[in-house]
Structures are given as C-alpha cells and as structure tokens.
Amino acid sequence: MARPRSSNCEEEDLMSANPSFPNTGTPSAQVESGKPLLLVDQIGIAFGGLKAVQGFSLNLPAGALYGLIGPNGAGKTTVFNLLTGVYQPDSGEMRLESRSLMGLKPHRIAAAGIARTFQNIRLFPGLSVLDNVRLAGQLRSSHGLFATLLRTPAHQAEEESIRNQALELLALFDLQDRANEPADSLAYGHQRHLEIVRALATGPKVLLLDEPAAGMNSQEKVELAQSIRKIRDRFHVSILLIEHDMGLVMEICERIVVLDHGVIISEGTPAMIQNDPKVIAAYLGTASEAV
C-alpha cells in the first residue's frame, strides 16, 4: 500500500503545523508560482462496510492537467463525488486556495470554484442547450425575487450578459447554432461537449472531467484532447480528468494518479506510470494479486 506522494510533503507539513493555512495570495499570483490550488489530504469514505476510498491525497497546482485512472470500480467517480460535496468524506481535509471544503454543500463547492462533468451524462434534458449553459452561468450573478418579478433594467442587463457568455462558451465546441434545441436532442458526443461547456460556465478554478472521451471515436478523441488543452490554457483552470483511454491520458496529462480498490497505488508522470509494475498488476492482474 505504498503511496508515493513526494511532491506534496512540504504542503502537508505546513498544513498540519498551521491549521488555518495562510492565504498564499490571489489566484493570479498562484498561477505564476505554481502553488497548490486544490489540496486534498487523506480523505476517505466508507459505505457500510465497504471502504470505497481511503486516504486519498492530491496536490493540484494552478494550471495543472492531471489524470486519475484505475480499473473499473476503483473509486474514481467516488473521489469526484467527495471533491464536489455529493458525499461527505468520513475523514481527511480538502482545501481550495486554503479555504476548507469540508462539510460544504455541493452548490457551495461549485461557487467556491470546482465544477464537474458526469460520467453518465446528467444534462437537463428538457431545457434547451443554451439554458443548460445559462443555468450554470448564472451562478455568479445575484437574481433577487423582486428584481425578477419587476424585470428591473439591472436584472435585464444581467440576464443579457449571462446569455452572451453562454453563447460565447457554446462556440468552443461549435454548439452555438443549436442553442435553442433541447439538450437531449444532441448526439451523444455533443452532449459530452455540452457537459464540459456547462461546467466551464460556472467559472471554475478546478474542472473535474469524468470520462470525457467515453463513447467517442478516435478522431473525436484527438479533437477532444486539443480542446481540453485549449480550455486549460484559455480559462486558466486546473483540470483533473478520469479517463479509460490510456492514449489520451498519457498524451495530455502532466501527472497521473492511479487508484485501485479505493487507494492510490501509484502517482507520477505518464512515463513513470507506464513502467510501474504495481499499475500493470492492477490492470492486468498478477499471481500475487489473485491471492
């Protein structure tokens, strides 16, 4: 059960020494210095007797693009659910820019700056493509009841700017022409794109992508890889992605965390991961694994 986490030892020490973890500065300062943006320390959760995730730690710097891989049922999506507040960790600590995320409701975590996509697409099927994005985009604007009911000029201007931002984001994946169609009328691949756009619209600092390439052909995967890089650079978000397509992961991720049976079995650069016997064993199984 080795957990090579050499990279974040320092930060961990700092955290345990000082629970309030001093603010390291504005987001832009962090981008330059590469300081940790999302710091996860030893979180875990058990469902009844099943320890779904145990002692998961992660140090995601600003602007990073990391991968989270592992065999089916390893607990990858559970990690996402923990990070976004769908489940509350039983133990550990998670911080976004020194602000603790423990105990926050999912909508507070979204407001704090973590957005996600879902493995089994969860768009709002009855809403239009545009409205799916607008819904996420309105997170950072106030919309009071009385301003809404009276349609004040300020309210109308706000709605207009949400709409424009949404259309702009849709253009990322050439979806702007289909803005008025119901979300569930899109083809599968486009629905996955729309999920990414919708997550981006919340204006996140960290973007969690859950199997963004699932169900895509190889040409689409190549384009997706480019898009993910582009998004990271253009929006200055850190990305953590779960993906089964090893080609894609190895190509675009700077570091990779490997999860098996709820624990991290390896972490490192793609080259390190590819040659780690523990990872190979987890995927292919070995005599010792079978015992």
Binding site: T84, V86, K105, P106, H107, A110, A111, A115, R116, F118, R122, L123, F124, P125, G126, L127, D131, R134, L135, A136, Q138, L139, S141, H143, L145, T148, L149, R151, H155, E158, E159, I162, R198, A199, T202
Partner: peptide, 27 residues
Amino acid sequence: RLKHSSLGRAMISIREDEIASQAMGVN
C-alpha cells in the same frame, strides 16, 4: 417572468436533475 428568468431556470433544473443542479451551483 419566473419561468423566463435565472430564478425559474434554477427551479426547472431541480425538476430535471437535482444532482446536476446543485453541482452547477443551484441552492
């Protein structure tokens, strides 16, 4: 007006999918 505003959109998103709705920041 409710139906055609951010507020109403948030309500409709709850109808469509609560989990996704709160993941997008809807209280």
